[in-house]
Every structure is written in C-alpha cells, then in structure tokens.
Write a protein that binds this DNA or RNA. Structure first.
Lengths: 342, 342
DNA sequence: TATCGCAGAGTAAACGTTTACAATAAGGCG
DNA sequence: CGCCTTATTGTAAACGTTTACTCTGCGATA
C-alpha cells in the first residue's frame, strides 16, 4: 500500500480525520481509548504523515540552509558537525550551499529564500560580497539569518553572529612568531573579498605595528583559501629579495600548501622557515612538522549558531538579540615554528 | 509586502489564477498579450511561487538525499561536487546525511524516505548494514535509489550503481608494492561492516595469493576510516615481530595517519617503510613524502550517480537499468613507495 | 431532576498551487 | 451569415494536513 493518507486511518479507526491528526500532534486532547484505536489503525495501515502536506499547511519546512565557501575545508566540516547535531536536536534538516565552487549564486540563494523553501539561513564566512547581496534581497521579507565565523560589518549590523575574535587571534599568532625572534614575517591571506580574511590580516598588521616591525611589499599575498593558491603564493614569497623567516597563513588549508612548497624548495621547517596556520583542522597535527596554529571551537560555533537561529525562528524574528557572540580561541603550539636561522 | 500569492497577481492582472499559473509553467498556452500583462503584475507584486505549495501539489520536493559515511573525508567531498553540479543542472537540491557520526540512523532515513520528503536517495559507500536496512524498509514504497562508490551485494542486486572496480584497484595497488620487491605487506582496512572496504581487502588478498606471498596474522588491521584509527592500527602493525615493509591503506585519510605514525616511530618513508593509499584526495600530493595512491574519478562518479537517479525518478522508477556502471581508476605513483630495505 | 460546564469528537474551511473540464471567444469555411 | 473547430481563459476540485468552531453527551452542581 504505497500512499495511505490520514483518511484511511480515520476510516479504519472509525473516527474523523481531525481526531487522527490530534492523536499525532496533541495526544493529550484525546481519550486514551480512541488514542489506542487510532494507534492501531496507524500501524495497521502503515500510515506516516505526508511531510509535504504538513510543511505546506504549517508554513514551515523544518529545513535550514547553510551557506559557506567550501564544505571541503575541514574547518567548515567541523563547524557543520556542530550545526548538524544541534539542528537534529531541534528537528531540522540542513541544506548546504557552497559559494566557492559556483554551486550557487546569491540570486539563487535569494530565490530559495523568498520562496520559503527554508525556515532560516546560516551564513558562514560569506558576508562579502555574497552575504551582503543576500541580505539586501532579504530586506523585504525578513527570513531569520544568523552569521557564523566572522563579524558582520557595521552597516548591516542587525544580525546575530557567533565567532572568535579573529583580529585578536591573528595578532596572537603573529606575536608568537615575533616572540620567537622573527622580524621578517609574511602573510598569506585568503581572499580580498572575505571579511574573515580581512580581520586576520588586520590582526597581523596590528601585531607587526605594535612591535614596530616593517612589512615589505610582497610579503602579504593572496592564497585563495586553497592548497594550490597557497603554493603559488608561497613560491612568490620565497622569491622575495629579502624574504621572510616566518609565514602566517590565514587558514590551515593554505598552511598545508605553504608547508609543502617551503619544503619542496629545499628549506627545512622550522629551521629555515617557520609556518603558522589558523583553524586547527584535523590534519594539522599529522603534518610534518605538526602545525602550530590557532584553534577554534568549530563544533561549538556550529551549535551556537543553530540555537541562535532557532530562537529567531521561534520568536518570529523578534526584536533584539542581534549581538555577536565571541567564543574563545587558543594558540596550539606544535613544531612548525622555531627561531629564525639568522 | 511579505506574502503575496498567485491570487494577488491574478487580481492585478485581471485574469484568473489558472492563467497566472499557466504563464509560469506553460507559457506557450497563453496569449502573448496576457502573458505580458501577467509578467508585469508579477514584478509589480513581487510575487514568487510558494515552493511548499508547489511541492505539495506536484508531489515532489526536488530534493535528493545523499547518505554517506562522512562528508569530512575529502574523497566524498569530491564526489559531492559532482553530485551538486549535476543535481543543480537537473533542478535538484541535495540533502546530506552522514552515518558515521551518528547524525542519522537507518530508521530516520527511512522516516524521511517514507514521508516523501525527498524524491530519491543516493547511497554512497553505505551499503552495509546501514544501506541494507534502508533498502528493506524501502521495499514497500519503492523510492528511487542509486548506489555510488561500491558494488551492491547480490541479494539486493536490483539497484543501479556507479563505482570503480575496487577489487581490481586494490589488487593493482598491492601488485605495485610487490613489483617493487615487497613481500611482507600489511593492510589497514576501513571497517568490517563496509562493503567497499571488504572489496579492497579482497583485492589485496588476491594479489598476495597470486604472488604466493603469505599474510601473517596481525598484518591486516582495522583503521576505522579515520586518522586516529589508522594511527592506532599502524602502531600495532609496527609492533609485529616480523613486521611488514609496506602498508596498503584502504583510503588516503588512513594513509595520512599511517604516514605520520611511521615517521613518528623514527622510520623513513619510503626507505624503511612504504605506504600506499587509496582515493587520491587533494592532500595526497602535498604529504611528505607525496602519497602514492589509487585515483578515482570522484566528481564523475557523483555526476553519473545523479543522472542515473534522475532517470529513475523521471521514468517513475522504470523497469531495467539496474546495472552497475564501472568507471576507471588509476594508479598514481608518487614518492611514498620504494624498494624494501632488506 | 434540570441546568450548566466541559471534555471529547466531528465538521468544514483553509493553506497556494495545478489541472481537468467547462465556457467563451475567435476564426475559418461553406 | 451561420456553424464548426480551435485557441484561450475561467471555474472549481483536488492534493493531505491542521485547526477554529460547533456539536454531542456526560458528570456535577444546585
């Protein structure tokens, strides 16, 4: 019996469909006797509610969409685990959309958004320019949105967000290099457009400035958040006349590429070149040498973001609660940073 | 104007709602004149169809579910890219469910399945025991299912699938080790329950047998498809009295852990120990040493799986087309395999 | 015993589409 | 000019739920 609806159940139990519905959704509003009768009929018919009809009627899909640059980055995978488990606990499924790989344009996200296919949206590290487009399109019909992993820019600041203090963390990473004696420090950032990347670059520059260290042109290059991009960037860095003795990579994915390229150039890490990453993805500790990096509570970020979003959904996108929530980061010292050879 | 429905458009354009609907779905059935009028009304009102209502009415969600062990494994990420792009081309969104991390039990998948939340299911390397549970539950209401990355076992053989020849590929990897002079070869497999793992183990054993090489007890251990599991397994392998000179890992994720642990034990790769992986994930080539491995056309598998699934969905799960489709693999020789030290 | 209150069950409308069918308009042909 | 065919539009039902409202009947209270 492929398609059994509430009607068959009602007939079999000789009650009205309303009663069947109540048995399922508000069991306390129904006599024990009828409830049992209906239960029986349900198993007898093999009935299960048509979720499409439910969604339609209730006006919610129990689906949340998360938009992120790339699910391939183990850091985001880790965030996703937090998101998933929290979402599951709250009864939601999650739809993942990637911006990096052209899977979806802002227009398409907006289309989904406006056609009510999802109950809310999580934007992970996609605030610029993608996220802002989504936001402005969403200004009319205000679907709940929460931002994760980065701070939302001030003009659109009416969005809740959960993230570490990227500026401080980057400053800390850079300061650590300085404390080890490095003075010529390069950086590989992610993408010009990415807020997150900009914050990390800000922190790096702040630390250098505080230590009164110069930053040569050519020491700061774009790694495109990918291994390939970072390898290219590293090659350029290594070719600088007065090349750095240490490199700060804006994430571990790029640090892995950087590490490889430095070693491929015949240099030893950390003896000839120190490398520090960001995120503490699961590969960091099995690199050779194990990567010193900044660790983020990825799963926790994911969970918190979901809770924030659910709150918004439940209260019909209420008033306040637009603050950004800072979670703690941590410098994890392994073996990829040493003292400069000088 | 938050919630504008087809009715408002109809009123504004002074036509019936049926006409509006036709303008959207069957424009050719409508006069150019009215079509324009309606178009205008649509933009004027800012109307966009309520997808929930559409799904409900049409009985399809345009959502496909893919179930896989772990999205964190870069190999599956790569398959997912293929799936995504093909799905997008076909107008589907994809819902990802992971089995590994307890995100979802077979029962829950079945619940979604039976409640028609998705139009079809892709099972990636999850045929046992998870997948088989799903299958048997699905035997009544037969939702389209396609299997990817592994061969479906014979009893349930009425499922289309797309995969490489895992047995042959594993045989090839092992033979390559043998051709380099190795005789004592260990293996780290994934999980006892995984079909895919079993096939790769079969290939390994076949190659050893063909070369008349013995396999000591303790040379074949479980790496749980994770870095941590593989590290543990590697330690055990290294502690064997007559330990192997080469290790075949059933996937790259485990090979990375293995590599690390071998080096941590003070051994050189490939001088003291050769390591070969499987999948050719993007980290393989930046390992130290770069990993020799079997490459799979991950994205292509993903695409083909989607096309197969769409065919099934469109033809209302027609008769034939249950064959398994074999895509080619390739041995990628890098630097993690050498001749034994002996 | 009559009345009131209330719990439990039923009736029917509503959600926003799509679509079979009916109706109308238009156009061609005799 | 009238009739028949066809192209276009309108009408209304249907999809499977949920839920506001109505109704029934029972027990308690006066």
């Amino acid at each position: 019996m492929p398609d059994v609806s509430i009607k068959e159940v009602a007939k079999l139990a000789s009650v009205s469909i309303a009663t069947v519905s109540r048995c399922i959704n508000n069991p306390e509003k129904v006599t024990q006797k009828t409830r049992l009768k209906v239960q029986e009929a349900i198993v007898a018919t093999g009935y299960s509610p048509n979720t499409l009809a439910q969604s339609f009627r209730r006006g919610r899909t129990n689906l949340i969409m998360v938009v992120l640059p790339s699910i391939g980055d183990p850091f985001f995978t880790a965030v996703m685990h937090g998101i998933r488990s929290a979402a599951k606990a709250k009864g939601y499924s999650v739809l993942i959309e990637e911006t990096q790989h052209d899977t979806m344009t802002a227009d398409e996200v907006n289309a989904m958004l406006v056609s009510r296919q999802t109950d809310g949206i999580i934007l992970l590290a996609t605030m610029s320019p993608f996220g802002t487009e989504v936001l402005s399109a969403n200004s009319r019909r205000r679907l709940p949105i929460v931002v994760g992993c980065e701070k939302v820019s001030s003009e659109l600041a009416d969005l809740p967000s959960v993230h570490i203090d990227n500026v401080s963390a980057a400053r800390e990473a850079t300061s650590y290099l300085i404390s080890q004696g490095h003075e010529r420090i390069g950086m590989i950032y992610g993408q010009v457009s990415s807020l997150l990347t900009r914050d990390r670059e800000l922190g790096y520059r702040a630390a250098m400035k505080a230590a009164k260290l110069p930053i040569n042109t050519g020491w700061v290059t774009e790694g495109k958040l990918s291994i390939a991009g970072a390898r290219q960037a590293t090659r350029e860095l290594l070719n600088q006349p007065d090349r750095p003795t240490a490199i700060f990579c804006a994430n571990d994915e790029m640090a892995i590429g950087c590490l490889h390229e430095v070693k491929a150039a015949g240099l030893s890490v950390p003896d000839d070149m120190s490398v520090i990453g960001f995120d503490d993805i699961r590969y960091a500790e099995v690199m050779d040498p194990p990567l010193t990096t900044i660790s983020q509570p990825a799963a926790e970020i994911g969970e918190r973001v979901v809770y924030r979003l659910c709150r918004r959904i439940d209260e019909g996108r209420g008033n306040g609660d637009n603050e950004s929530e800072i979670v703690p980061h941590k410098l994890v010292i392994r073996d990829s940073v040493g003292e400069p050879a000088d």
